[in-house]
């Protein structure tokens, strides 16, 4: 259970990284090579949902694990855990945020664009929280491969954010800045 809990945590983190990158790409309105825009949208959604599934497995397996000594309250309420309460609490915060984002994402057509969008912004908070949780709470921090992966993800996310904030981010930004074709 312990090993499974750790592995599923990594997978969830990797998938969340992918989902954030796809989300930013999706927002730009650009297709990616052979992938049309609606495929990126669907991929973004499915990768995110898969990440949530692995997050569930991660939490569930550690709940059952005798070594982790996770109790059900810690799953919902952050910073009360017995082992490294701060770093573990970050994981709980991440889980709560993911739940909010997933639920509003699935109910987008019911709750309306405004509510969906304001909650969806929280995704930008999930990633650093999850990464901090992995670095602070994880027991694999010493291993080189994990640090390499974490660094690579951080660089990718930072680059995507910079691109997101650049004036030429949107596919149509050239025309929208008033240039005629």
């Amino acid at each position: 259970m312990w090993a499974f809990g750790r592995v599923s945590g990594f997978v969830a983190l990797a998938l969340f990284t992918g989902s954030v990158l796809l989300g930013i790409l999706n927002r730009s309105g650009r297709p990616l090579m052979v992938l049309p825009r609606f495929s990126i949208s669907l991929l973004h959604r499915n990768v995110a949902l898969l990440a949530a599934v692995f997050l569930g497995l991660h939490v569930g397996s550690l709940l059952l694990d005798s070594f982790a000594k996770l109790n059900p309250v810690d799953v919902v309420v952050p910073f009360l855990g017995s082992f490294q309460p701060f770093w573990q609490g970050l994981g709980t915060v991440g889980l709560d945020l993911v739940l909010a984002v997933v639920v509003t994402g699935l109910l987008r057509h019911r709750i309306g664009q405004r509510t969906f969008k304001s909650v969806h912004w929280l995704s930008y908070g999930v990633w650093p929280v999850a990464m901090a949780h992995a670095l602070g709470n994880g027991t694999d921090v010493s291993s080189g491969w994990f640090l390499m992966l974490a660094a690579a993800s951080a660089v990718a996310i930072a680059a995507a954010l910079l691109w997101r904030l650049s004036p030429s981010f949107l596919e149509t930004s050239h025309a929208r800045q008033g240039n005629l074709p």
């Binding site: 309105g29 609606f38 149509t172 929208r176 005629l180 074709p181």
Partner: peptide, 13 residues
């Protein structure tokens, strides 16, 4: 993209 026969896009998308 989903309705290529029905919809085109203008200068601004």
């Amino acid at each position: 993209e989903l309705l290529p026969g029905v919809l085109d896009r203008d200068d601004w998308g």
